Structure formats: structure tokens, C-alpha cells
Amino acid sequence: MGNTSSGSVTATATSSPVVLPKNTYGVGILSGSMDPLTLLKTTADVTVTTGGTSVPVRSVLGGQRVNLAPGTTIRWDPAIPGLQPEANVLAPGMTGGTKAVGFGAVAQVRLYESTGVEDLFKTGVGLFPALVLVWSGSDEDENVGRGATLLRERWVLAVVASRADGDETRRAEALQILEDASELIHKQSVVDGEVFTAPQPVLVSARSRIVSTSAAYIYGIQFSTVRSLEKRESRVFPAFEQVEAKWPLPGTPEASVVTGAGIPIPT
């Protein structure tokens, strides 16, 4: 999609200072609505105070749209306990974003639950070529111990190409983007220090043509990521503070035991 933008925002704690970790996400508010194309992330750990603290950020996607003007409202997503839900872009704004040009350049990325041609307008896709990410389900991958299971999340990355200069060019561009995207995601597991799949990396399992029409070609990359599902414990247990030990005395029958005093357990 092109180069990303970078800049700083002012974050504010509601009471005591809050550590805002690297790779915390926010979304720009444009025309009164959250704009997913302006998704951004923090680039360093910063302690935020009630007086407002400057936090370095960069856009997740590339393009000119991610060059946000000073004063643009950013909403943390998800919300962060102890932090005001919104921040503001500091002067001189978020800069450096440039639009990708040429054959195989991607104009848009969207998240949606369907890749049917009749549903494309619902994703907000209006610029092509575009990528549409679809979550297709989860499978249990492995039981890794008491209260924890590895889940394999299954995804489809749809490549949508629509050009006015002919069928052959449209098909060739879609296939080129399919190849580029496959190479970029396959075997990846860490981005900007953020682990998003473990203990296994992204695995591309299949690629196929989803549908083709007179207006567009749609190809799909099926891939998977792995995450841990932890049991949520709702039971409450009393504190274990001491233990009582019994042992046989030297020279006495084995059945003869003496009860020792309670031994405090260090906390």
C-alpha cells in the first residue's frame, strides 16, 4: 500500500500514571466515525500521566490517507483501563505516508466476514486492487496442559483485482499480488516485536481462485495462526499458609509417629 506514516499523540491517564506498552493500537476518528484504514500502533513503552504525555506512534497501513492532521482524534482500541479513551495527534501531524504506484500496488485492505462478489460493497472496498481479510474459524490444535489449549485460527486473505484495461492484465495483477502476499505472510510470527502466532508461525495451507466476473478477479490465500486459550478460573480458594508433617522417631516402630508443629509457608 506504500509507506507508513509516523508522529506522536497526546495520551492522558485518568488518575495514577499508566504504562502504555509498545504495540498498543488506536484508530483515527474521521468525519465522526472510526476509520479502520487509519489504524496505528505505539512504537515504545511510555508512562502516561494525568497531565498528558506524548506517545510515539506509526500507522499500520501505508498510503496518503494515514497522514493525519494535527488535532485528529485517536481512539484506543480496545479501551485501556486507567487511560482516557481518546488521544489527539500532535503537531506537525502524522507524516511520511505515501501511496504505492505501479503494477501490483494495493490500494485498500479491509476486514470482513464474506468474500462473495455481491457483498464486496459492504466491506467499503471501492479502490482496487484490494485485500480483504476473512476469519473462517478455529480448530483445537493441541492440549498443552491443565487449563490451556492451543487453537489454530483459520483465515482467508482475498485478493480483489478490478481494472478497466482488460481481462488479461486484471488476472496477471491479481496473481502477482497473490504471490507477493503469500511470501510476506508465510512463516512469519513476529512484527515490530509483537508475537501474533506461537509456537508455530503463519502457515499458508492453500491458494485458489474464489470467483471471477467481467468486473473483477478474486483469489484467496488460506493460512493459519496459533494462539493459546486459557481456562478462566472463577473458583476461590483459601490461602495455603502452613503444613503439618509426621515422621517416625529413630528407634521406634515405624507405626509410631510424632506430630510436628505447623510450619509456616513463606509468602
Rank of each mutant, 00 (worst) to 15 (best):
S224G: 07
L133K: 03
V132D: 01
V66T: 04
F240H: 07
E168F: 08
G104Q: 07
D180V: 14
A164D: 13
T38Y: 02
G82A: 06
G7R: 06
F103A: 06
G7E: 08
A100K: 03
L90G: 02
L40Q: 03
R235Q: 13
S138G: 07
L39P: 02
F237A: 08
L131T: 03
V257K: 13
V134T: 14
I80Y: 04
G63S: 08
T73K: 11
G147Y: 08
A100D: 06
G51S: 08
R235Y: 04
G126Y: 10
G7A: 09
M34H: 00
W155H: 05
A164N: 14
L178Q: 10
R227S: 14
A255R: 11
S5Q: 05
L40Y: 02
A130P: 02
A255F: 12
P238D: 01
A181C: 02
T267I: 11
P266K: 10
S182F: 03
S162L: 06
P17W: 09
G63T: 10
I263K: 07
V48D: 05
G260Q: 13
E153S: 12
R170V: 00
N88G: 08
E183C: 00
V9Y: 11
Q64E: 13
S228H: 00
L111D: 11
L90A: 05
P201M: 11
P264R: 08
A100H: 00
P70T: 11
G116K: 14
D139M: 05
S6N: 06
Y25E: 05
L40C: 13
I263H: 07
S8M: 09
V109D: 03
R170Q: 02
V101T: 15
S228M: 13
L120P: 01
V109Q: 03
E173M: 09
L203K: 09
A130L: 09
Q200T: 08
A172S: 12
D139I: 12
G51D: 06
S16E: 14
K122E: 12
L111N: 09
E140V: 15
R152Y: 05
A44S: 12
V211E: 10
L151V: 13
V191Y: 09
S59C: 02
T38D: 01
E113W: 10
E118A: 15
K22H: 05
G220A: 14
